[in-house]
Nucleic acid binder design. Structure first.
Lengths: 226, 226
DNA sequence: AGGCTGCTTTGTGTATGCAAAAGCAAAGCC
DNA sequence: GGCTTTGCTTTTGCATACACAAAGCAGCCT
């Protein structure tokens, strides 16, 4: 189980991957409006590449749901309505809740110790109010829980879906006080884990994620994004 | 929410899609051994096409996790160890359990009525012992539940992951008595839904899926697949 | 005048060519 | 004799070229 395959140490970045990441960032950041047509030749020119890697990037984005390909009718940025974003957050919340429940029952003492260490490290970050650092920590925290489920497939799915929402989460974190509250919620989750109460940890994780979603919705409505 | 779905109404089949489906079938059926190298030129020759659509097909399969692409090192059929398949089934079981819980609390009377109708229709299929028909019904049954969550994103995710395991499920269904038991388990789930007890429905759904997984594991071990 | 039809244009789908990187193997060196 | 290095082969990654389908437009017919 959990064969850790993260080959994030991969060699030189492939052109198609660079284009994919660039487009993903722009879509998530709202620079590319929903429904906007993505012309392959145009993008190829913009990235100084040919259509081939652009096509691959677009297909991968389609697999991730960020764009929609209509056969012979071009690619458009997927619609990201507030409803859809809330749906996504609810889904993530449920998956995270599921993961933490399984993780509570299955994690090894070593894993628990690492998680505690990780959680402790976030205190300093919150004090500094370093959003970027907290974002990085947050990712590590949640991924540690995924892996602690000892179900590598589930962990992969959770990471994939987490990544899809990452851009939105970053926006949400910058709401005032959200860092403090986020950490406090983590604290509550950690306590439930320590008590070995997976159901409680699960409910707290769900609440944690839904709080984040609510913060994000406020952010979106305030900024008229999406 | 649940914006109407899905243009599954594909127009004329694209060559790359045909290749993707063909390869997906072969991989799921075990005709292509795990770890086997998939040479682009070779496949292109086999399908009487060029490398371009083959490449696209392989990328899509990679996105679905059926193959693994190692940059500049070729594409291989993803390893499907029994452990990994069990991980996949557990994940699906948890997601299905989550879906049925949400669905129980959110489904409209109309949706509930449709689901009951659907379930009732399976009795005749089981009597005939028609595996193919039951497979089709089963898919419809579970998808009805996904949609009843009124979370279109979650429904899409569930369908996608369900599709990934579809081939394995078909194999599992052909275990003797499995049709009967499957329907009986559906019956129990339906009852919990009727009572509005989402938690109970959830637990029963999880048990249902894990039973299927166990049946599959026996099948795999018996046939020395994967 | 309005709708239909055929053409044009735009852009995707597919084919092919080229170059660079990874793997392999053999030969040379210590 | 073992290890390293270098060149060769294989195969991918990217570029370019071509074909065809779909949307837009204009002219014609009704």
């Amino acid at each position: 189980m959990t064969d850790e395959s993260d080959d994030t140490t991969e060699d030189r970045e492939l052109l198609s991957d660079r284009i994919r990441n660039a487009l993903a960032d722009e879509i998530a950041a709202g620079k590319l409006e929903a429904g906007a047509a993505l012309d392959e030749q145009q993008l190829a020119d913009r990235f100084g590449a040919s259509r081939t890697p652009v096509r691959e990037a677009l297909r991968q984005l389609a697999a991730n749901g960020l764009v929609e390909v209509r056969a012979r009718r071009g690619v458009v940025v997927a619609r990201m309505t507030p409803e859809r974003i809330m749906d996504m957050f609810e889904t993530v919340a449920e998956i995270e809740a599921m993961c933490v429940r399984l993780a509570t029952y299955r994690m090894t003492p070593l894993e628990r110790s690492h998680l505690i260490e990780l959680h402790d490290s976030s205190e300093a970050i919150v004090k500094k109010g370093d959003f970027d650092a907290y974002d990085t920590f947050n990712r590590a925290f949640h991924e540690a829980i995924y892996h602690a489920t000892h179900n590598s497939f589930l962990a992969e799915q959770a990471i994939a879906i987490h990544n899809r929402l990452m851009a939105f989460r970053r926006a949400q974190l910058q709401q005032e006080q959200r860092l403090d509250r986020s950490r406090a919620e983590h604290e509550a989750i950690m306590q439930a884990i320590a008590e070995g109460d997976g159901e409680l940890a699960s409910r707290r994780m769900r609440a944690h994620m839904l709080n984040a979603a609510t913060a994000l919705r406020r952010f979106i409505e305030a900024n008229k994004l999406a």
